[in-house]
């Protein structure tokens, strides 16, 4: 366990992680160390298991009927599939942003940011204003929405909605932010905003981002994992992976021979 490398400390350690949907094995034993305070990108063709791997980190995978995970995933040295871990509490530590912006339609901008506290019954009115401002500022949205906090969350543009969803995740004060193709429904300008945001956020958070866009992985991440049909093929520094991949399949993928 105490492999003293020059690498930064690992946030997540995955050992032989397998995942199933019913009888269909979609992850065939993944080993990986995800470093703290950095951006890790997961790339690969559709159906390679990248989203499943992401969802095994906050135990969202097991919420689908018949889905299960085997193997060991530790966060800060604690096995998150251990018997003493409550997945609900884990998910407050490990925030998640989804492919399509999904603000709660019945809630205002402000209420959306506070939704985590409201839903979990930890809402404290005296701290609400501070939380809203901090989370929206962190998500680089405060200046755009500070005058319309009471407007419905869904009245914002697509890119603003996605940053609102990021603010909503940050408001719960997680240490990790998982992003599942967060820009696939956004236009190029909104995408750039979110990518810049990812850059800033890594100082305070560990970020794991799934993307089908290799340029995006190259732009935002420190380390990149390439997956293919349920196997982790290569996982190294982003620059190295894109400049001199060690596996021929990685090279084929990043040079556009398939996928």
């Amino acid at each position: 366990m105490n492999d003293s490398q020059k690498e930064p400390a690992s946030k997540f350690q995955l050992r032989n992680v397998k995942a199933w949907y019913g009888d269909n094995e979609v992850l065939h034993g993944v080993d990986a160390d995800i470093p703290e305070h950095s951006v890790t990108a997961i790339i690969g063709p559709s159906g390679c298991g990248k989203s499943t791997l992401l969802r095994s980190l906050n135990r969202m995978h097991e919420l689908v009927d018949g889905a299960r995970v085997d193997g060991q995933v530790s966060m800060d040295g604690v096995d998150i599939y251990g018997p003493k871990v409550d997945p609900v509490l884990l998910r407050r530590q490990v925030g998640m942003v989804f492919q399509k912006p999904n603000p709660f339609p019945s809630m205002s901008v402000r209420e959306n940011v506070l939704a985590g506290a409201r839903l979990t019954g930890t809402y404290d009115p005296s701290r609400a204003d501070a939380i809203v401002q901090r989370a929206l500022t962190q998500a680089a949205l405060w200046d755009e929405v500070k005058d319309r906090l009471e407007a419905p969350g869904v009245s914002l543009s697509g890119g603003q909605q996605q940053r609102l969803c990021i603010a909503r995740s940050l408001a719960v004060e997680p240490t990790v932010l998982l992003m599942d193709e967060p820009c696939s429904a956004l236009d190029p300008i909104a995408t750039t905003r979110v990518e810049n945001l990812v850059h800033t956020l890594k100082q305070d958070y560990t970020i794991v981002i799934v993307t089908h866009n290799m340029q995006q992985a190259a732009r935002v991440s420190d380390r990149t994992a390439f997956m293919l049909s349920g196997d982790l093929i290569e996982f190294s520094d982003t620059i190295q992976l894109f400049k001199s991949p060690s596996d021929p399949r990685t090279e084929d993928y990043i040079t556009g021979k398939f996928g």
Binding site: N58, M60, L63, V88, L89, L90, R91, R92, G95, M96, F98, K100, N102, P103, F104, P105, A115, G116, R118, L119, T120, G121, C165, R168, S169, V172
Partner: peptide, 23 residues
């Protein structure tokens, strides 16, 4: 009710019942 709303709520650390009741 779209599935994405349930996911959003669960990912914020709400329990299943909190998600049902409030979302």
């Amino acid at each position: 009710v779209p599935h994405s709303l349930r996911e959003a709520s669960l990912a914020l650390g709400a329990t299943r019942w909190q998600t049902i009741r409030r979302v």
